[in-house]
Design a binder for these strands. Structure first.
Lengths: 252, 252
DNA sequence: GTAGCCCTTTGATATTTATCAATGCAACTT
DNA sequence: AAGTTGCATTGATAAATATCAAAGGGCTAC
């Protein structure tokens, strides 16, 4: 039906269980960014191979001992935090090239859950070894710091979203963020499959699933997007962006 | 009047402009945590001295080049993010021993503003030099990673707060968090001065200032706290905690 | 010390989002 | 192929918070 959408389903790489960074299509998005061939070979040595997960499987759970961080090689994940009293907050969605598990460094114990939202594969990066190697390879050390800092900056963006935006603004920001990330990976920025349910989107955005559904419907009625269950086509990216700058919208 | 409250106003240390980590009362809360005397001396060498800020002064602004991170030696800060369309989200409040500026590592440019909420002092920690030293001192490297990870975990907690809690729960969580942090620094956990306005609290908690004010009044009416402008006394910490676990509250 | 200003409180009303409820749709199972 | 189950949509109503407005109090700067 929609040929370009299939790009999202078929991973860019066909992963074996042990794929070297140097052979990986994602290396420019991922931890090896900027390494020389020689240094990348040393990183290859360190990486503990891949791990495949079926949809619904946990990569790690809150409370488990922290040993590795993970690079998403293919697939799609969510991370969430649960409290004793049953609150559940999705803290992020991760796709190819992104790093998972940095929450565990601080206490040596994971503080959130990471779940595959589709059949996925990750690279294991033992953290102690990574620290050892990064003290020898300056650009690796610096890039690791950048990755952690980027996560902090991303979190600030989510706080902004949760703290200051209304429902439709949040959803617009969410769609545009996905669009941009798919685009950066060579997929269509305008048409993609959501891997998560309305409830998971709602949890991430601080909304109830009904509110998410209604906002989707409203966007569709306004001709901004077309929605069919989890299949999204963005019809008017510029206008979707204006939803995020209400001041301009009012002035214009 | 309230002798123990003065603890919050008089800093634990009387800072000169150049105070060595090894002499600093905050070393166990701050970056030098766990270092040997020898390694701490090397860190002393690196730290570029202190900087004093008057209330209202910016430590750094979004858009400025990133060069250093900062350790709060004394005082109180807020960080906030502004968008073009005028949204303003307070992303955190920082007190003695806490690290500021890690948002800038990712792009070499600061992405938020840091403002002193009272007369304050920070230590400058040039980041490139810190990376160089941390590649030689493993425990320093690891502690830096822990500090960044802790920031990520803290951010997840804020997302949980913004995404799942109602107004009074957010405020209770905020007060208990402050209480615990003051306590960790040797101040009273039950009585303290807020350095920020209702509007800043509201921005942090995703609420309007009036909602914050009303929640304070309600807490006071319920005998949980006593409020007089910025002066807070927590009268019933256990009951304040139960506000955060509504499930238990309903069961009990 | 005092004037001015900002911050805070409180009330009345409006808006947004959640909740409750029912139906429809689609994918998976047997 | 039909039944089951979970997910999504939509409507009606309720609850929470924002907005608008006014007045009081305390801090700061002169």
């Amino acid at each position: 039906m929609h040929a370009n959408v299939k790009h999202n389903v078929v991973p860019l790489i066909t992963p074996g269980l042990k794929v070297a960074c140097s052979q990986c299509n994602l290396r420019e998005l991922c931890l090896p960014f900027g390494l020389s061939d020689e240094d990348m070979a040393r990183l290859d040595n360190l990486i503990g191979g891949g791990r495949k997960l079926k949809r619904g499987q946990h990569l790690y759970r809150a409370g488990e001992a922290f040993e590795s961080i993970f690079a998403v090689k293919a697939g799609f994940f969510k991370t969430d935090v649960l409290t004793e009293d049953g609150r559940d907050q999705v803290t992020g969605f991760q796709m190819a090239g992104e790093i998972l598990g940095m929450d565990g460094i601080s206490t040596e114990v994971h503080t959130c859950n990471a779940v595959a939202l589709e059949d996925s594969e990750v690279c294991l990066i033992p953290f102690t070894e990574l620290e050892m190697l990064s003290s020898e390879i300056h650009s690796l050390q610096h890039h690791l710091h950048k990755v952690m800092s980027r996560e902090i900056v991303r979190d600030h963006g989510v706080m902004m979203l949760l703290g200051t935006m209304r429902a439709e603004e949040r959803l617009a920001a969410f769609l545009l963020n996905l669009s941009q990330r798919f685009n950066a990976r060579g997929y269509s920025p305008a048409e993609f499959h959501l891997r998560m349910t309305r409830e998971e989107i709602g949890s991430y955005l601080g909304l109830k699933l009904e509110t998410v559904s209604r906002a989707f419907s409203r966007f569709q009625d306004d001709g901004l997007i077309s929605v069919q269950q989890k299949h999204i086509r963005i019809l008017d990216i510029p206008r979707l962006k204006t939803l995020l700058t209400p001041a301009d919208g009012r002035l214009g």
